[in-house]
Amino acid sequence: MEGFTSGKGTAESAPEEFKTGTTTVGIVADEGVVLATDRRASLGGRFVSNKDADKIIEVHPSAAITISGSVGAGQTFADQLQAQTSLYETRRGKEMSMQALSTTAANAIRGMRVVPLLGGVDETGGHLYSLDPAGGLMEDTYGSTGSGMQMAYGVLEGEYEDGMSVSEAETAARAAVEAASARDTASGNGAMVARITDDGIEREELSAEEL
């Protein structure tokens, strides 16, 4: 392995880490947000290291992130957000707004090799944000990250409509993950879907056949 022969701790020489490869999708609907991801984790996008990877992580009673990029960075990032939202709620007696949560997330993510979507609901409605490792934060009404994002966006561009219902958004999100899974070697093994509304987060696992 290169990591042992070069003797240098550079990024190129480090042993390859688990990556999600991944297709993740988020859509803002009329009464909430839908997140969907595939369930494959891979090494270098060529070896399937896990067929039941959980890439939607709840970070707030009514918000969750999808992770693409390094699995370790994504899990650490989610753990930190969970700690911060919990501390905020305990100290102040109210849940973080999506404005507060998204700003907190953008501050926490700097330097972490993860490209998440953050979706959640507060009293101002549903919100979806994309984040990047430099702390970038952009709000959108639909979006996708990961190696399958081109295929997913192709579907979303055709399917997304302003004010679509949660179930319509879920259908579109599943179709986007399905299209990416069909053509991206690093995406597949079914899907995970999360419907986030005022009532909280509802998750559903789908096998490749069900998708």
């Binding site: 404005q99 998204s102 700003t103 907190t104």
Partner: peptide, 9 residues
């Protein structure tokens, strides 16, 4: 404001 992007409560 830097942490949460909101006016302090």
């Amino acid at each position: 404001r830097l942490r949460f992007g909101e006016d302090a409560g």
